[in-house]
Amino acid sequence: MHKDKGWRFVLPAVVVLAAVVMFPFLFSLYISFTESTAYNIYRGRFVFFDNYISLFRDVKFLDSMRVTALYVLFAVAIETVVGTALALLIDALPKGRKIFMVLLILPMMVAPLVYGIIFKLAYNSIYGIIPVAFRDLFGVELNILNRPFSALMAMVVVDAFQWTSFVFLIVFSALQALPREPFEAALIDGASYWKSVWYITLPLLRPVMGVVLIFRIMDSFKVFDQIFAITGGGPGTATTTMSLYTYFLMFTRYNFGRAAALTIVILIAVTLISRVVFRTVYREVSYQ
């Protein structure tokens, strides 16, 4: 085999990715060491690590980390539990599994912004269907988006409505591919359905759950569209995640230097995490 020849085929993709990913990254790195603002974008004064130092003294940045962590924690927990339960439920159906599967994965194909619009209308404190239903049926006045914690949990609910379907799809597909023998053996031994789920199905699902968790953690960490549409980060900074905070630094405060420093911090964190992930999850996968 000619060992050098493979690169010829990969080159076009590498050139494109170098242009749209690597070059911008290096540019961002440069900006992060300068005092770049809207008035001197490309020739800000070189300030070494000042942007990084001020970033970690920035209360709003630290707060956005807290908001993001809470959001990811609650959203991923709910989606994993409900999605797995749904997958087990549909897997237990003797017939019509495929139709139910397709009907349950529709939410994740829709734009997150559309979910933002749906729930902005549904949460409206005057005519939104959720506060109205609570008022008419239970006589409870809800002001969902006006209190910090309930606003954040309302954002988690939106995420869960859309992305539980992702967990469901992956776990359900994995269930279809599980070997049948352990279950037949358990049936002969007289194990109940719940016992075989707990002692056979869930342990067999462990590697897949790893993949699901990683994709959900990474993707909910990125959240922007829905929150931007529903609360714009408020009340106060209660729903300002790291993505929203970076956006505000860039396009309302025009502090490009600090924003660039923030993106570099995010990038380093994500690279470290995905390196660990890659080692553990993709170790077994081979493409021969």
């Binding site: 749209v20 990913v21 911008p24 990254f25 540019f27 961002s28 900006i31 990474m218 960490f221 990125k222 922007f224 790291m242 993505s243 970076t246 956006y247 860039m250 490009f256 924003a259 660039a260 993106t263 995010i266 990038l267 994500v270 690279t271 995490i273 995905s274 992930v277």
Partner: peptide, 11 residues
């Protein structure tokens, strides 16, 4: 895995 916001500023 990289959040889009990382590319947003330089792009």
């Amino acid at each position: 895995m990289v959040p889009p916001v990382v590319f947003a500023l330089p792009l």
